[in-house]
Measured scan of single mutants.
Amino acid sequence: NQASVVANQLIPINTALTLVMMRSEVVTPVGIPAKDIPRLVSMQVNRAVPLGTTLMPDMVKGYA
Score class of each variant (00 low, 15 high):
Asn1Met: 15
Asn1Leu: 15
Ala3Trp: 14
Ala3Gly: 07
Ser4Gln: 02
Ser4Ala: 03
Ser4Asp: 01
Ser4Leu: 01
Val5Asp: 01
Val6Gln: 04
Asn8Arg: 13
Gln9Gly: 05
Gln9Pro: 01
Gln9Met: 14
Leu10Ala: 13
Leu10Cys: 13
Ile11Glu: 00
Pro12Trp: 12
Pro12Tyr: 12
Pro12Val: 06
Pro12Ser: 05
Pro12Ile: 05
Ile13Tyr: 08
Ile13Thr: 12
Asn14His: 10
Asn14Tyr: 08
Asn14Gly: 13
Thr15Phe: 13
Thr15Trp: 08
Thr15Ala: 08
Ala16Tyr: 08
Ala16Arg: 06
Ala16Leu: 10
Ala16Cys: 15
Ala16Gln: 08
Leu17His: 00
Leu17Ala: 00
Thr18Ser: 06
Thr18Ile: 05
Leu19Arg: 07
Leu19Ile: 05
Leu19Gly: 05
Val20Ser: 13
Val20Asp: 04
Val20Thr: 13
Met21Ser: 04
Met21Ile: 03
Met21Glu: 02
Met22Ile: 09
Met22Asn: 00
Met22Val: 06
Ser24Asp: 14
Glu25Asn: 06
Glu25Cys: 14
Glu25Trp: 08
Val26Met: 12
Val26Pro: 09
Val26Asp: 15
Val27Glu: 02
Val27Tyr: 02
Thr28Val: 07
Thr28Asp: 15
Thr28Gly: 06
Thr28Phe: 08
Pro29Thr: 11
Pro29Leu: 07
Pro29Arg: 04
Pro29Ser: 06
Val30Ile: 08
Val30Gly: 10
Gly31Arg: 00
Gly31Asp: 01
Pro33Glu: 14
Pro33Ile: 08
Pro33Cys: 15
Pro33Met: 11
Ala34His: 05
Ala34Pro: 14
Ala34Tyr: 09
Ala34Cys: 15
Lys35Ala: 15
Asp36Pro: 00
Asp36Trp: 04
Asp36Leu: 04
Ile37Pro: 00
Arg39Asp: 05
Leu40Gln: 00
Leu40Thr: 01
Leu40Trp: 02
Leu40Arg: 00
Val41Met: 14
Val41Glu: 07
Val41His: 08
Ser42Gly: 12
Ser42Lys: 10
Ser42Asn: 11
Ser42Met: 08
Met43Asp: 03
Gln44Pro: 07
Gln44Val: 11
Val45Ala: 06
Val45Arg: 00
Val45Asn: 03
Asn46His: 11
Asn46Tyr: 14
Ala48Tyr: 08
Ala48Asp: 07
Ala48Ser: 13
Val49Cys: 07
Val49Gly: 01
Pro50Ile: 09
Pro50Lys: 10
Leu51Met: 14
Gly52Asp: 14
Thr53Lys: 07
Thr53Gly: 14
Thr53Gln: 08
Thr54Phe: 02
Thr54Val: 10
Thr54Ser: 04
Met56Tyr: 09
Met56Ala: 06
Met56Glu: 08
Pro57Ser: 14
Asp58Glu: 12
Asp58Cys: 14
Asp58Thr: 06
Met59Phe: 13
Met59Val: 07
Met59Gly: 03
Met59Asp: 13
Val60Gln: 00
Val60Glu: 00
Val60Tyr: 01
Val60His: 01
Val60Phe: 06
Val60Gly: 01
Val60Asn: 01
Lys61Pro: 08
Lys61Ala: 08
Gly62Gln: 09
Gly62Ser: 14
Gly62Asn: 11
Gly62His: 10
Gly62Ala: 13
Tyr63Cys: 04
Tyr63Gln: 03
Tyr63Ile: 03
Ala64Asn: 13
Ala64Val: 14
Ala64Gln: 13
